[in-house]
Simulated assay, not measured.
Amino acid sequence: MAVIKIAIYQKNLHKRISSDEISRIQQSKAHFLILPEGFPHLFQSESPQDAAKHEKEYQDHLLEISETFPGVILGGSHYRKNEDGHLVSALPIVQSLVLVDFYEKKSPSASKEPGVVPGKTESIFIMGGLRFGLLVGEDLENESIWKEFKKEDIEIIFYLSYADEKRSYEEDLTYFESLAKEKSVHLIRVCGPSDGKPARSLYASPSGINWKVGKAEEDKDVFKTLSVNVMRSYLL
Rank of each mutant, 00 (worst) to 15 (best):
C191I: 01
L74R: 09
L173Y: 07
P118G: 00
D221Y: 15
D221S: 12
F132W: 06
R200P: 00
S123C: 11
L99Q: 08
L179R: 03
D101P: 04
K151H: 04
A51Y: 10
L173S: 02
Y159E: 05
G119H: 06
R24D: 13
I17D: 12
R200V: 00
I154K: 13
A180Y: 07
S109F: 09
V100W: 12
F125V: 03
P114M: 11
S184I: 09
K106Y: 06
R200I: 01
S109E: 06
S168Y: 13
S194F: 14
D221A: 09
L160I: 02
P118D: 00
I4A: 03
F223L: 14
H54I: 08
A30T: 00
V190R: 04
S77N: 09
S19Q: 13
W211C: 00
G115D: 03
E104N: 14
S107A: 07
V222Q: 08
K197G: 03
A7I: 04
V3A: 08
L179H: 03
L35S: 04
L235I: 11
S184T: 06
S194I: 08
Q10R: 12
L135R: 11
K220C: 05
D101W: 13
P36R: 15
I25D: 09
E218V: 10
I73Y: 09
I22E: 05
S227K: 15
P48N: 07
M127T: 04
Q59M: 13
A110M: 11
M1A: 11
E143F: 05
N12R: 14
S205E: 03
L173C: 02
S123N: 13
E37G: 07
N142A: 05
K183G: 01
T68A: 14
G133A: 03
R232H: 05
D139P: 02
G119M: 07
Y9W: 10
L135F: 07
K106M: 05
D84N: 10
D20L: 12
K147C: 02
K29Q: 08
E182F: 14
Y175D: 01
R232K: 11
L235R: 15
K150A: 06
K11P: 00
Q59I: 14
D60N: 08
P40E: 08
K56Y: 14
A180L: 04
P40K: 12
S201F: 12
D164I: 08
K120R: 15
G208C: 01
V3T: 11
E83W: 10
S18D: 09
E155T: 02
K212C: 03
F32Y: 14
A180F: 06
S109N: 09
D101S: 14
Y159L: 15
I65Q: 12
E217I: 05
D172T: 10
D50E: 14
K112M: 15
N142I: 01
K215D: 02
N82T: 03
P40M: 10
F149E: 00
Q27P: 01
K5Y: 05
A90R: 08
E152P: 01
D50W: 12
C191N: 14
H78C: 13
E138F: 12
H54N: 13
S168T: 07
D219R: 12
F102I: 07
Q27T: 04
E55K: 08
F69T: 02
G71Y: 05
G128Q: 09
S233A: 06
A7H: 10
P198R: 09
L187W: 04
P40F: 11
Q10C: 10
